[in-house]
Amino acid sequence: ADDEVAKLLVDAYRKNDEDKLEEVKKRYNISDEQVKRLIRKVL
């Protein structure tokens, strides 16, 4: 599931889509710190 979330985050990140990032964060209840970590893992 982590990889799936990471893909969604990276996708939103690449598109610079703040709304999507927020949506994913809320849906999976993850912190900014986790977001950064997941994005770093993929990029």
Rank of each mutant, 00 (worst) to 15 (best):
K25E: 00
I30N: 00
D19R: 14
K7R: 14
I30F: 07
Q34L: 08
K25T: 03
I39A: 03
V5T: 04
Q34Y: 12
L9V: 08
V35R: 01
R40A: 14
L38F: 05
Y28D: 00
I30T: 01
Y13G: 01
V35K: 01
E33Q: 07
E18L: 15
L21G: 01
Q34A: 10
V35H: 02
S31W: 02
A1V: 15
Q34N: 06
S31R: 03
Y13W: 15
E23F: 08
D32A: 08
A12R: 00
K36F: 08
A6Q: 07
D3R: 09
R40E: 13
K25V: 04
R14H: 09
I30L: 15
N16I: 03
V35G: 03
E22W: 08
L8D: 03
K25Q: 07
V24P: 00
K7T: 08
K41Y: 10
D2P: 11
D2H: 11
V5P: 04
E22D: 09
K25L: 03
E22A: 11
Y28Q: 00
K25W: 02
I30E: 00
V42E: 08
I39K: 02
V42Y: 15
L21K: 02
K25I: 07
L21W: 04
D11R: 05
V42C: 11
E23W: 13
Y13R: 02
N29Y: 04
Y28C: 03
N29F: 05
S31P: 04
E22H: 08
A1P: 14
Y28G: 00
N16R: 13
A1M: 15
V5H: 03
E22F: 07
S31E: 03
V24A: 03
K20R: 11
A1T: 13
K25M: 10
R14L: 15
K7C: 14
K41N: 10
L43Q: 05
V24G: 00
I39R: 03
S31I: 02
D17N: 06
V42M: 14
E4H: 12
A1C: 14
D17R: 05
D2I: 12
L9P: 00
R27E: 05
V42F: 15
Q34R: 05
E4Q: 09
L9N: 00
E23T: 05
L8F: 04
E23M: 10
K25S: 04
L38M: 10
L38N: 00
L8M: 12
N29V: 03
V5E: 02
K26T: 09
N16C: 15
S31N: 08
D32I: 05
D32N: 07
D11P: 01
E22K: 10
V42S: 09
E4F: 14
L43N: 04
D32L: 04
V42R: 06
E18S: 14
D3L: 11
R37H: 11
D17I: 03
L38W: 04
I39C: 07
S31A: 04
V10S: 05
D17A: 04
A6V: 14
S31V: 02
E33P: 03
I39Q: 01
A6C: 15
L43M: 11
K36W: 13
D19Y: 11
N16A: 07
E4D: 11
K41S: 11
K26Q: 10
Y28N: 02
V10P: 00
V42A: 14
R40P: 02
R14S: 09
A12Y: 07
K20T: 12
V35M: 13
A1S: 12
E33Y: 06
A1K: 10
E22S: 08
E23A: 10
K25D: 00
R14P: 01
R14M: 15
Y28F: 11
R27S: 05
D2E: 12
